[in-house]
Design a protein around this nucleic acid. Structure first.
Lengths: 122, 122
DNA sequence: AAATAAATAATAACAATTACTATTATTATT
DNA sequence: AATAATAATAGTAATTGTTATTATTTATTT
């Protein structure tokens, strides 16, 4: 994969936020620096960055979001404001349980907690 | 919500399978019994059934699937064949951990294991 | 500096889902 | 049982998120 300034800027934007942005959000942010950037370019580069392991694509309901944090972690999503908060909840008891009870080879454990964040629970 | 035969048939179809079908799959199945059923009707009724708690909408990548099993459980998804297998992995240690460490009110814990099912791991 | 091929912008195509609207069917009322 | 009220439907159009296409541009190799 060869250098492209578009990809660099897209990566910088993903790495600049904890907000787990969507492709569209990243596109609008990047467009300020690259006025004739194309949304397709954003999608293509996000996919490439995900495939090479630089960022991680996550899925929120039915839209894709992108996370600079590629280390194993989980998410808590507030149903009021939509915010996605990073947490670490998994331990290896889950993988152990699967290994013990099922013939299933685990690649990844995705866990999302749905609820109300501290700003919105009364 | 008043009676509709379309909704009855849609519910029956969801309840007839463990395959976590998509709206489109349900639509094609239901169409054999209701030849001029509309896909919008399927979506509307699936949403209603989900809202009243009769079935549960789950999200698989970027498409919605529907599950008759509304009891708390998790899913293992095979990346080879796409099959989604019901499992029970959660215990209340996760909710306990959140209660202890974060000011976040939990409604639901969604967990999906990505990997290879027994039919496809060599 | 020229050649090669990967990446781009612009646009079209696509898939999943939701919205709109005139008509039909269910339930409540007479 | 007939009528009225209105929820649900079929058919269709619109919307949203994403991927594909293609002529042009740009990074890298020769």
């Amino acid at each position: 994969m060869r250098f492209s300034s578009q990809r660099e800027i897209i990566r910088e934007i993903v790495e600049s936020t904890n907000a787990h942005p969507t492709a569209d959000w990243i596109y609008n942010k990047a467009k300020k620096r690259l006025p004739n950037l194309s949304l397709g370019t954003v999608y293509r580069n996000l996919k490439q960055l995900d495939e090479e392991g630089t960022i991680k694509a996550i899925t929120d309901g039915n839209v894709s979001r992108y996370d600079w944090n590629t280390a194993s972690h989980d998410h808590m999503k507030c149903k009021v404001c939509g915010e996605i908060i990073d947490v670490h909840l998994q331990d290896d008891s889950i993988r152990k349980k699967i290994r013990k009870n099922y013939k299933f080879e685990v690649d990844d454990v995705k866990m999302t907690i749905i609820g109300t964040c501290k700003k919105h629970k009364k």
